[in-house]
Write a protein that binds this DNA or RNA. Structure first.
Lengths: 340, 340
DNA sequence: GTGAAAGCGCTAACAC
DNA sequence: GTGTTAGCGCTTTCAC
């Protein structure tokens, strides 16, 4: 057992392997990569020497020479958020399966941080970059001469200015999910729906508007805005009571859980007094008390898709067709028919 | 606005910048890195040209030349787990603050995957690697000629064989946390404590044993083993009832939440009929219903510490002193004094 | 089928 | 202060 000298450890190079194997370095390079035009005999011989010596190729040198790094960058606001974590997991698993490593960074919804991370990825020659919930001002991004190979997931600003980005985009079918939720809530006899807002991002606006529209179509009372993170959650509970909401649609599960928590404190019963609907279907939604009715988003699968789109774009050289991922309404305890 | 050619895009090199700036490439290199021995005038001139051209240095080439990549690897079983997510976040934030990028990989507690990820990080010249909850057989790991600069967080197998690893190690002070929990539970009048086991890892054994010992000292009934993931959670609830447990210590919060869920189904009241104690204090613990009594572990801070230890080791060349992180008992609704 | 040589984009002595 | 010269460890024409 060899003690790992931590620093300055000089690692084996391809050339040393070649000397011991008694062939040229080029041959070792080819043999190790299973280049077809190398004889089976030398290939095996070289490989034997290589892993006998414990040779680990230097990916850095390889990247420099090949001008491709087998590295992908992932930028999320916060891995700690279950949705983002699942996204990163799905992305990483797919990337690993394809022989890629991933660089990850947390932007904390900060435009400056996001931009810097993007540059860092570019600097590290990432073959592609996936950005989840990008808050970047598209003007700023596009003005720089290159964004590289990018896929945007649930971008917040793109499109706001009617810009056509030359990148693949993945969106959620928010409208359909919300419409379904509203339809079912109305069928259950609810007529005064409130909306618990999220951060000032595009998804929040889309979801709210979808709710407004769906309620209009259902010809019941218009959507009651309950305020967002700016307002204290207690104030929101108060509004729910005074507005007489019988169902609340939340921007996401996290907010829904917090709402359940304060409603419990205030002795407003869920679902008897008010129904609560989340968004995301994080793992916890199925074991909360009450279990949360929500709209399920396959974040892990989306991560895998983002990875594949990136690779596809890298190969084709053009933006992959953008897609809209379907979401699914999941009925659980936090929503029941309105008591007569 | 320039259309981002996705592939084969030839990026600006240092040399091109130098030509336009009318100086040598070495000068540009120095100016950009604020080398003190460059005149203020040329430094500014060079920088102006560089960012006018939108020059982005090639970190790959830099790594090759400097033999240090400003890259750190992080290996966790599953980013989706709140504890791991927090760890990665803390690690990444600290790394970013120090100018490092991170590579992340999910091992899914699979030894082979873990080993491969480790090699990949090494291949990519990571300046350090943090492994959370490593399941690697230390023999296998040590036999390879180098592990590089590593920090182990809550390793599962190290020490089992009495091996002295030459790496920094971060452990949790499980025993103290559990002891405190048991002490308080006993003070509250509980006397039949059960333990809901986790995966077959070192931490699980440590926590269980700490509970056994603490109960002995308290001179109440010995610990009742409730089984682990192998047993269905329903079977566990049944055992709780038949054994007459009045308090259950769980390996982690996730299991505690699942337990709360099935106890609710079975109409066993928490905390009235049985108290429940988790471990980790994931964010959800404070808004679950009932809110979960647990032992808080500062995973995000641990991530930052791991990062710093890695950097310290890289600089000093020797293993950083191992540390044991204190944990904190947090009393919430799921545990109350035993009703008389 | 294999070797020699040039080069990927940068940093680091060493000169001047 | 700044330029010149070698590499870093690999891939890749182009010969043979």
């Amino acid at each position: 057992v060899d003690s790992p000298r931590l620093k300055g450890r000089k690692r084996l190079t391809l050339r040393e392997v070649s000397e011991i194997a008694g062939v040229s370095d080029a041959t070792v390079s080819r043999a190790l990569r299973d280049d077809p035009q190398i004889s089976e005999a030398t290939r095996r011989a070289v490989k034997r020497v290589a892993d006998q010596l414990g040779y680990i190729p230097n990916a850095t040198a390889r990247s420099l020479a090949k001008r491709t790094s087998q590295t992908l960058g992932v930028l999320v606001p916060d891995v700690t958020d279950p949705a983002h974590g699942q996204f990163v997991l799905g992305f990483e698993l797919e990337a690993a399966a394809q022989g890629y490593v991933i660089l990850v960074s947390n932007s904390r919804y900060d435009e400056a941080v996001e931009l810097k991370a993007h540059q860092t990825f570019l600097s590290n020659q990432a073959d592609g970059i996936a950005v989840f919930s990008s808050v970047l001002d598209p003007i700023a991004a596009l003005t720089r001469q290159t964004m590289g190979n990018v896929v945007l997931v649930e971008p917040q600003n793109v499109g706001a200015l009617g810009l056509e980005l030359k990148t693949g985009v993945i969106r959620l079918d928010d409208a359909a999910g919300i419409a379904e939720a509203v339809r079912i809530a109305v069928e259950m006899g609810h007529s005064r729906a409130g909306y618990l807002s999220g951060p000032a991002v595009a998804a929040n606006v889309r979801r709210r508007q979808a709710a407004v529209r769906s309620l209009e179509e259902a010809a019941v009372d218009p959507l009651i805005l309950l305020g967002s993170d700016a307002l204290s959650i207690d104030a929101i509970a108060a509004r729910i009571r005074q507005e007489g909401c019988d169902v609340v649609l939340c921007f996401d599960d996290q907010r829904a859980f917090r709402l359940l928590d304060v409603l419990r404190d205030q002795r407003i019963r869920v679902p008897e007094d008010v129904g609560v609907i989340g968004y995301d279907d994080v793992p916890f939604a199925r074991i909360s008390n009450p279990r949360l009715t929500t709209i399920a988003v396959p974040y892990q699968e989306i991560g895998a898709i983002a990875c594949r789109m990136l690779l596809e774009q890298a190969a084709s050289g053009v933006a992959a067709p953008s897609i809209t991922v379907p979401v699914e309404f999941i009925l659980r305890e936090s929503l029941t028919p309105r008591p007569a």
